[in-house]
């Protein structure tokens, strides 16, 4: 055929992942999960505006029951619990937004490295085996013992726990993708290795990683709570959901309602992230 400019315009760009991700988030559970996460995180971020009191300001009475002045009541020093819970959420936002991405990126790089040479694979995978052998809390204790308790210890632990999770997943996804015919086809038509990785292998492997990211966020909230609960996480008087829970246990007899708000928030967050993960899983992976 001759070129006469009459050729219809072709969309030869591949439409990105937007469509796929959107489909993943369209399910009922992921929408519910996203709403819960958005509300809770917004409360945390807007804490300075919403919170009626300073989280450190000690008030008139301790262990006051919930009332219009103090929606969740007050703690042992008379601080407003509602404000402390709002500020406590911020710690989880920090952990989720900083530690999970760091862990994910390191893990993905190691996973990628695993596919380069078999000996590198062996070394890295055995390293993953070792780190997976420790439960997250044991890892937290170890980190806290080395650098001292505090928010940094939580961040490092969460990042560290996530490395093998993402590493394994990346490695296996890349492996299975590399054996696909269309990757071979790309190689055969002369697509350079880097482009092969970026255009063919990664886009098709990323679904599993997105699902893992949602689950990792819930794990991050859980680890923060657990570490602060045993006293090696966020240090007092800084509020965090975990430390609030820990303190509340001491005073369960005097103030039974103390434990409920932080508990509900932690549960809701973990549940919500899991819902998002499930929804993504359905939409993206099960075709």
């Amino acid at each position: 055929m001759t070129a006469q400019g009459a050729i219809p315009t072709l969309a030869i760009r591949s439409r990105g992942r937007g469509r796929g991700l959107f489909r993943g988030l369209r399910s009922v559970e992921s929408v519910i999960g996203l709403i819960i996460v958005a509300v809770i995180f917004a409360l945390g971020l807007l804490a300075p505006i919403i919170a009626p009191y300073s989280p450190y300001a000690q008030g008139s009475g301790s262990f006051l029951p919930p009332s219009p002045d103090h929606w969740f009541g007050t703690d042992e020093f008379g601080r407003d619990l509602f404000s402390r819970v709002l500020y406590g959420i911020r710690q989880d936002v920090i952990v989720g937004a900083v530690a999970v991405p760091i862990g994910a990126i390191l893990g993905m790089l190691l996973g990628l490295a695993s596919t380069l040479a078999w000996w590198l694979d062996t070394v890295i995978q055995r390293g993953f085996d070792v780190s997976l052998a420790f439960t997250s809390l044991v890892m937290g204790v170890t980190v806290a013992a080395i650098i001292g308790p505090g928010l940094p210890a939580v961040l490092i632990t969460v990042a560290f726990v996530n490395i093998p999770l993402f590493g394994r997943l990346t490695r296996n996804a890349l492996r299975s993708q590399q054996a696909r015919d269309y990757v071979t086809a790309g190689r055969v038509v002369g697509v350079p290795p880097i482009r092969l990785l970026l255009r063919h292998v990664l886009p098709n492997s990323i679904d599993a990683l997105v699902v893992q990211a949602a689950l990792s966020l819930s794990l991050a909230v859980f680890i923060e709570g657990a570490m602060s609960f045993v006293g090696i996480g966020v240090k007092l008087p800084e509020p965090s959901l975990g430390s609030l829970l820990r303190t509340s246990i001491n005073f369960l007899a005097q103030a039974p309602t103390y434990a409920i708000p932080p508990m509900l928030v932690v549960t809701a967050l973990v549940l919500a992230f899991n819902l998002v993960g499930d929804g993504l899983n359905k939409g993206l992976l099960k075709r």
Binding site: A11, R13, S14, Y182, G186, V189, R199
Partner: peptide, 14 residues
């Protein structure tokens, strides 16, 4: 043997 995330045109153009 075709990348599911690439349009047919993109695959032939690659």
């Amino acid at each position: 043997s075709l990348n599911p995330r690439m349009t047919v045109g993109a695959a032939v153009a690659e």
